[in-house]
């Protein structure tokens, strides 16, 4: 399980990195961020890049800051950076809680936010966060930049709108007025890939849920918001019966992935449980 040979590049600035990517992408060059998904794929020789452009030493790609109501996250910001609140308030708390579900400590010390998005694993927690909150990603190449909505970015299982010569350099995560959030993930063992997970964000207005965003991940090819479930909750009180109704709606509208571990029927039941529990979690973070 040794990777195939490749040529290593360690650019110190973004323009240099983009130039290298432009030069080598046509012949199998790739960006190396945290490497916690790419390197295992290389070990199994499922990925055989000819060139690796290591962006870990580009200082401007790391760290996060609030800009115009959105958290702008540099692509090589590591999962571990979210642990103790990367920003104040409920957004930082939510991101910290969600990050604790990503694999294990040593993986979180290396794996990056942008790397997770570009890898687009259906079970990625960050992909779910981006889609649920309506985030956008900045994609750059040697001659330009574009912003893409998260909902358009993820196109399938480990497939994105990213062109070969483009690099995901930033993620913009807006935080609306809601301060209620809940997250629940179901996996075989702690740190395993999610079999189903749900993130819900809303605000309470006189005891009624408003601006409800409810996303599921790990269950379909890409994470998505479930409008029908959101509609059931909007304007209602956060009560058990309403949660059950929303969970049932979510399960009903699912197009579940199946494999030897999880049948479609089981995945539906898992999503139902994840949605209901995420909603309950929004009321009690203990």
């Amino acid at each position: 399980m040794k990777p195939c040979a490749f040529i290593y590049h360690r650019p110190s600035g973004l323009p240099e990195a983009l130039a290298l990517l432009a030069a080598h992408a046509p012949t199998g060059g790739r960006v190396l961020a945290g490497g916690q998904s790419l390197v295992p794929m290389m070990a199994y020789r499922m990925a055989q890049p000819s060139h690796l452009i290591d962006i870990n030493h580009i200082a401007t790609l790391q760290g996060a800051a609030m800009q115009n109501g959105a958290l702008v996250i540099g692509t090589t910001t590591r999962h571990a950076a979210f642990k103790t609140g990367i920003c104040p308030g409920p957004l930082g708390a939510m991101l910290g809680f969600v990050s604790s579900h990503i694999a294990h400590g040593p993986i979180r010390n290396r794996g990056t936010f942008g790397g997770s998005l570009a890898n687009a694993d259906p079970a990625s927690e960050w992909c779910l966060v981006m889609v649920t909150l309506g985030g956008r990603v900045m994609l750059q190449h040697a001659s330009g930049t574009r912003m893409v909505a998260a909902g358009d970015f993820f196109t399938g299982v480990m497939a994105t709108a990213l062109a070969d010569d483009e690099m995901l350099t930033e993620a913009h995560l807006p935080w609306g007025q809601g301060d209620q959030w809940g997250f629940y993930e179901i996996s075989r063992r702690a740190g395993d890939y999610a079999l189903a997970m749900c993130l819900v964000v809303y605000r309470l207005d006189n005891g009624l849920m408003r601006d409800v965003r409810l996303g599921i991940g790990g269950a379909e090819a890409t994470p998505r918001r479930l409008a029908a479930a959101e509609a059931i909750l909007a304007g209602q009180a956060p009560t058990g019966p309403n949660f059950i109704q929303a969970a049932d709606a979510a399960a009903a509208m699912l197009k579940p992935m199946t494999d030897h571990n999880v049948t479609a029927l089981f995945r539906r039941d898992l999503v139902r449980a994840a949605v209901r529990r995420a909603l309950h979690h929004s009321l009690n973070h203990e």
Binding site: P40, Y44, R188, R189, A190, G191, D192, Y193, H260
Partner: peptide, 28 residues
């Protein structure tokens, strides 16, 4: 509860990584 070697019907083995063959951790 966890560990199982799985073959598909053609005799191809599906559990060739530790992400598929699930050994217990301290949590389990």
């Amino acid at each position: 509860l966890l560990e199982e070697v799985i073959y598909d019907e053609t005799g191809n083995i599906l559990t060739i990584s530790l992400a598929d063959f699930l050994a217990p951790t301290a949590h389990e």
